[in-house]
Structure formats: structure tokens, C-alpha cells
Amino acid sequence: MAATRFLTSIGYMSYFSWFGYMEGSLKLVPGFLIVSVVTALVESLPISTELDDNLTVPLTSILVGSVIF
């Protein structure tokens, strides 16, 4: 699952870079990998009875992404 998220984020970076919305570079790739792995770990935690994955995964992605980028 983390591999799919990682490849999708690279694809989106390329897409937005192609249209000039952001400047794509290889320096962003490790950050995308870290965010993908952390969100996959959060999704696999057995806390789904207390917290919904639809809330925890995006919030984790925003939090980790804002710290890294």
C-alpha cells in the first residue's frame, strides 16, 4: 500500500510540475517516501474501533508533510 501511495505522489508531482503549479525535483522524493510509509503505518494500526481511518490517515499525512516540507 505504501508503494502505491509513493508512486502516486511521484505521479502527481510530475503532473503538477508539468503544468507549472510546482517545481518538481528529486529532493522531494525522500519526503514523499516518508509520508507514504508513516501513513501506511497509521492505517495498519488496530485503532479503527476508536478512530476512523478516513480521519487519521489524512491528518497524519498533513502533519508529517508539514513537518518535512
Rank of each mutant, 00 (worst) to 15 (best):
A3F: 13
A3P: 02
A3C: 08
A3T: 13
T4P: 01
T4N: 07
T4R: 11
R5G: 10
R5M: 11
F6R: 03
F6S: 03
F6P: 02
F6D: 00
L7M: 11
L7N: 08
T8E: 09
S9V: 01
S9G: 06
I10G: 01
I10E: 05
I10C: 14
I10Q: 03
G11V: 08
Y12N: 05
M13D: 10
M13F: 09
S14F: 12
Y15T: 11
Y15Q: 09
Y15F: 15
F16D: 08
S17D: 15
W18L: 13
F19E: 09
F19P: 01
F19L: 12
F19S: 12
F19C: 11
G20N: 05
G20C: 06
G20W: 01
G20L: 04
G20H: 04
Y21V: 08
Y21P: 00
M22F: 09
M22P: 04
M22Q: 11
M22T: 15
E23Q: 12
E23V: 13
E23Y: 09
E23N: 12
E23I: 10
G24I: 02
S25Q: 03
L26I: 12
L26V: 12
L26W: 14
K27G: 04
K27L: 11
K27F: 10
L28W: 09
L28Y: 10
V29A: 06
P30W: 01
P30S: 01
F32I: 03
F32E: 03
F32Y: 14
L33C: 08
I34C: 03
I34M: 05
V35F: 00
V35W: 02
V35I: 14
V35E: 02
S36H: 01
S36P: 00
V37F: 09
A40T: 14
A40E: 14
V42P: 01
V42F: 00
V42E: 02
E43Q: 14
E43F: 11
E43N: 13
E43G: 15
S44I: 08
S44M: 11
S44D: 14
P46S: 10
P46N: 12
I47S: 06
S48W: 08
T49N: 13
E50T: 14
E50H: 15
E50K: 14
L51W: 11
L51V: 15
D52Q: 12
D52W: 08
D52P: 07
D53C: 05
D53F: 02
D53Y: 04
L55T: 13
L55E: 09
L55I: 15
L55M: 13
L55Y: 14
T56S: 11
T56N: 02
V57Q: 03
V57T: 08
V57P: 07
P58T: 04
P58R: 06
P58Q: 07
L59Q: 01
L59S: 05
T60C: 07
T60F: 05
S61G: 15
S61T: 10
I62N: 00
I62K: 02
I62S: 03
L63K: 06
L63A: 15
L63I: 13
V64M: 05
V64Q: 00
V64F: 04
